[in-house]
Amino acid sequence: MNRNSVSSNSLEAESLTKRYGSGHTEVVAVGNVSLNVAKGEIVALLGPSGAGKSTLLTLLGLIRPPDTGRIVIDGKIVFENNRAKVNVRRFRREKLGFVFQKANLIPFLTAFENVRLAMDINDQPAKVSRKRSKELLEYLGVAERAQHLPCKLSGGEQQRVAVARALANSPSLILADEPTAALDSVRGRQVMELFRKVAHEQHAGIIVVTHDHRALDVFDRTIEMEDGKLKR
């Protein structure tokens, strides 16, 4: 294998498997899944509840280690032979962006500070992080709420701040798990379109788990999952 190959893929995952429990209670949450996402591509991940979508995202996001398989992100092998090949904490802050169903903002920091924090922990100079946080909040249409604490924001505003945080370090891969579940369909669609814009403008690969079939036209591609496997 060629470690130094410059790949046009944001993500290459090969035969990922994740089991929970053991013996009688064993669940194969993700079974031998292989998946590529190109740079600048936005992919919808569909599937019934319990299909293993969230689990797959945690594997790709280096949040949980897969039992088997290989993950290459931005041309770099990050997981292989049961072992992380990079400092996962560092890789997450530098290359990955996460958005979940709940915004999960830090409650004691303002919207602005929540975005800035992502850059601060990635050792960005204060000047840069301040400027970019402001820009991102403007980009997402929550600039006027920048100095508010999360508890003073609506669900949609919180979610947009969370998206801004995910974008802060210009990640190569963004993983979003039902990011619009808490939003109304108009807001939900706005967020999806925003992801599309980010993918196309910033050449990030984006995987969005969604149940909202009305917004599927936003995506470049949809993949479906069932019982831990991708449907062909």
Partner: peptide, 16 residues
């Protein structure tokens, strides 16, 4: 704890 887990998730160092 939830916030701390989130900090870890977005890649904060243990020192933070």
């Amino acid at each position: 704890l939830h916030d701390i887990a989130m900090l870890k998730l977005i890649g904060a160092r243990n020192s933070v």
